[in-house]
């Protein structure tokens, strides 16, 4: 049986204490909420923190509120299932709810959290392997080695951003509340990420994502389409998140974000800029979708071939646009 390495589990009484514990223990520590991402990685000895700082029990991280305008704030330790079952949220932000429902399997959604999925580690099929396999293969940049197994001449790690909720959160213009040694800061979700598979989160030592703020729908529609081999379980092979504001068939605003084609969610703002002020017909969708496929650069470190994944970006972007265009616009409460 695969077993966890030894560690001590700390139970802070507050977010501030959690932050302090993480700052104290530094690189030896890791924050843990649901643990669905961290614990398998620990069993495979990809990471071996000796101190785990548990935050799932903190009430401050499990609240959920809707403002009068329809903005929603979700505590980072709320489970993905709780998001799915949240009828009000599904009404205001269908794209986000959709994405949460497409993460992994039912049991993992019952444990996996809102914050955990936003922060989920990048993946690579040279990295997400057992210690024995990686010994046979040789270490990589993400496991302290000298070279990337996927692209040996590359100076950087190409592990893939594999969050389903990050692309849609970016597309919706969501913000993240981060607690750290210097207090709380609020940042656009987009700026949580860096294009480096080995250090994909722009969080400082001791910082914890505490809340996700989804803005009021304000006439925006949204959709997330996930590419994967099977109907459950699988991580995204590509994801397309679309936020769209249309008035009488004419685009007033549009954001398109791709997931799982780089080490961070990729927003294609230049590509969709031209849509604004234009009618959203099939031709326009086709053009944007083709453009997205051209820009997407998936690599050969996930399931199925990267050639097919790149080609399919066009399909999922088109599907996401069609879905968003026909989705309901949330009424202001």
């Amino acid at each position: 049986m695969l077993r966890l390495p030894r560690f001590s589990y700390l139970r802070p009484a507050s977010v501030a204490e959690a932050v302090a514990m993480l700052a104290d223990h530094g690189d030896r520590s890791s924050v843990i909420a649901g643990g669905t991402d961290l614990l398998p990685k620990m069993k495979r000895r990809q990471v071996q923190p000796t101190v785990l700082v548990g935050i799932a029990h903190l009430e401050a991280l499990s609240h959920r509120e809707t403002t009068a305008s329809g903005a929603v704030e979700i505590g980072a330790s709320r489970t993905l299932t709780s998001v799915l079952k949240d009828a009000e949220l599904a009404h205001h932000q269908p794209g986000y709810a959709q994405a949460a429902g497409l993460v992994s399997s039912p049991a993992l959604r019952n444990t996996g959290t809102v914050g955990g999925n936003l922060c989920v580690d990048t993946r690579c099929n040279y990295y997400d392997m057992s210690e024995e396999w990686r010994t046979a293969s040789g270490s990589c940049l993400k496991t302290g080695g000298e070279l990337c197994r996927l692209a040996p001449s590359s100076p950087r790690c190409w592990a893939i951003s594999s969050s389903d909720t990050a692309p849609i959160a970016v597309a919706l213009g969501a913000t993240a509340v981060v607690a750290g040694p210097e207090g709380e800061r609020e940042v656009p979700v987009a700026s949580l990420y860096r294009d480096d598979g080995n250090a994909h989160l722009a969080l400082g030592r001791g910082e914890i994502l505490t809340r996700l703020r989804l803005p009021a729908p304000d006439g925006w529609r949204s959709s997330y389409v996930k590419l994967r081999r099977r109907s459950s379980m699988d991580f995204p092979l590509a994801g397309a998140a679309v936020a769209l504001k249309i008035d009488r068939g004419v685009v007033e605003g549009c954001r398109l974000v791709l997931g799982a084609v780089a080490s961070q969610p990729v927003e294609l703002s230049d590509l969709v800029h031209g849509l604004v002020g234009q009618p959203l017909d099939e031709e326009a969708i086709e053009e944007v979708a083709s453009g997205a496929s051209r820009l997407a650069k998936p690599l050969d470190n996930a399931d199925l071939s990267y050639v097919w994944r790149k080609r399919m970006v066009k399909e999922i972007v088109a599907r996401a646009f069609r879905q968003a265009a026909t989705s309901e616009v949330a009424a202001v409460p």
Binding site: M1, A56, P106, L108, T111
Partner: peptide
């Protein structure tokens, strides 16, 4: 033992979770 097969599914307060990924402290 990695949360991939579902064989260890148990209920925690009625909700299915994977026992291989649940710590006693949780």
């Amino acid at each position: 033992e990695l949360g991939e097969c579902g064989a260890c599914t148990v209920l925690l307060d009625g909700t299915p979770v994977l026992a291989c990924l649940v710590l006693p402290d949780q």
